[in-house]
Simulated assay, not measured.
Amino acid sequence: MQGNDSASFAGIGGIGSRIWPLTGPEIISRDALKTLRVRANAPGLIRLAVHISALALGVGAVYLSSGTWWLMVPAMLLYGIVIVLLFAPLHECSHGTAFQSRWLNHALGFIVAFLTMRPFLYFKYRHAAHHTYTQHEDHDPDIVPFPTSFGDYLRQIAGFSFWPKLVGTLWRGCLGRFSEEEREFLPESVFGDVSREIRIMCALYLAIVAVSIWTGSTIALIYWFLPRMLGEPVLRAIRMAEHTGAEESPNLLANTRTTLANPVLRLLYWNMPYHAEHHLASSVPFHALGKLHEHVSPHLECVSRSYFQVHRDILREVLKGKKREMAAGE
């Protein structure tokens, strides 16, 4: 870890720093937090079983629609959405809150990281920086800038910047040469472990490609890679809704958005739509975020009824800004 600003980390999942003193968690009483942060294996195993069942249904839908593109593409899209929503258990495991057992958190974290092409250890440290510097323009590595135009909005949703960043992460990790930004959140002591994980992942990816070419099989392409790519814009839209357009300040009650999503999405996204609640107390497991919402909802400044509402509001502001620019130019 670098000496100056980054030395202020309070550890993985810590709250704030000297240069970005986060506020908001003080509204949660110690007694309530003590009750809510209790971890257990059962809720995570049940949620995992639900997610695996949804993946199995997706595989079945793609298989049954094979040969009929106008059925197969929608089936692959829906299946792909289920795949990319595996980001939720990856995220939860990075906090060590998906399960009570540490080995379960690590095992599922590494497996899901491989399936979603996000290195687990790398993500863990990057995400810690996101929690420490939430909405800081320079130090939050996951800040999503407000779209400057409708075209910029579409590019962000399509993942125009996401995929190059992902490939760059894997490439630099394989070489063991991390960027200046990555060195801000990756302690030097973990460079070797992070590189080793990325090299193993990439070796396995290359092995899958080689076997697929050798055998002439399209299984990995049809039942993993293509659906995973098709589903990514949905995850981009969800991730954008978490902070974009919220206040760019250290106030967690205003810089993070909670979205009152439908029960199906809350189920497959492991309650992450309760995002402000998660940032206020990242030690609270996913299954208790609904109860935490009951405690803090009167204090939250950024709550939306649905993801459609979030994006409608973002687009309205984008178009207003465009109209103002046109009017100023006349």
Rank of each mutant, 00 (worst) to 15 (best):
S94V: 09
L253E: 12
G24W: 03
A61M: 05
G11V: 02
F9H: 15
S161E: 12
L90I: 07
G168D: 08
I15G: 02
L226K: 00
E242L: 11
D31L: 14
L86S: 14
V318T: 08
L86E: 06
Y63L: 13
G168L: 09
A113I: 05
R155C: 15
G13W: 04
T258K: 09
I12M: 06
G24R: 12
H106N: 13
L104C: 04
R183P: 04
V194C: 01
R155M: 09
Y133A: 01
T97L: 00
L55P: 06
S94P: 03
E242V: 14
H299E: 11
W171Q: 04
S8A: 14
L253R: 12
Y133W: 15
R257M: 11
V50I: 15
P119R: 06
H136A: 08
M72C: 13
L235E: 00
W214S: 06
T97W: 01
F225S: 12
H130S: 01
H279C: 07
Y125M: 00
P74H: 08
G96N: 12
L175Y: 05
S29V: 01
I222K: 14
T132V: 14
R37C: 06
M240R: 15
L267M: 11
L230S: 00
M117G: 02
I52F: 10
N262G: 09
I28Y: 08
V303Q: 07
G329R: 15
T35S: 08
A98H: 14
A49R: 08
G176C: 05
A88C: 10
R236C: 14
R266F: 00
D142E: 13
Y63M: 12
T35V: 05
V73Y: 02
M240W: 08
P141L: 04
P164K: 03
I12Y: 08
C174M: 06
D142K: 06
P233G: 11
N41L: 03
A40H: 10
P164N: 05
A113T: 01
R102H: 11
E294D: 14
C93I: 08
I83S: 06
R305L: 05
R155Q: 15
P43D: 11
V73M: 05
G216N: 03
F308Q: 14
A56E: 01
S217W: 07
F185R: 07
I27L: 13
Q100G: 10
M72H: 00
S282I: 09
K320D: 07
N4V: 05
H139C: 14
A113D: 03
E301Q: 15
W70T: 02
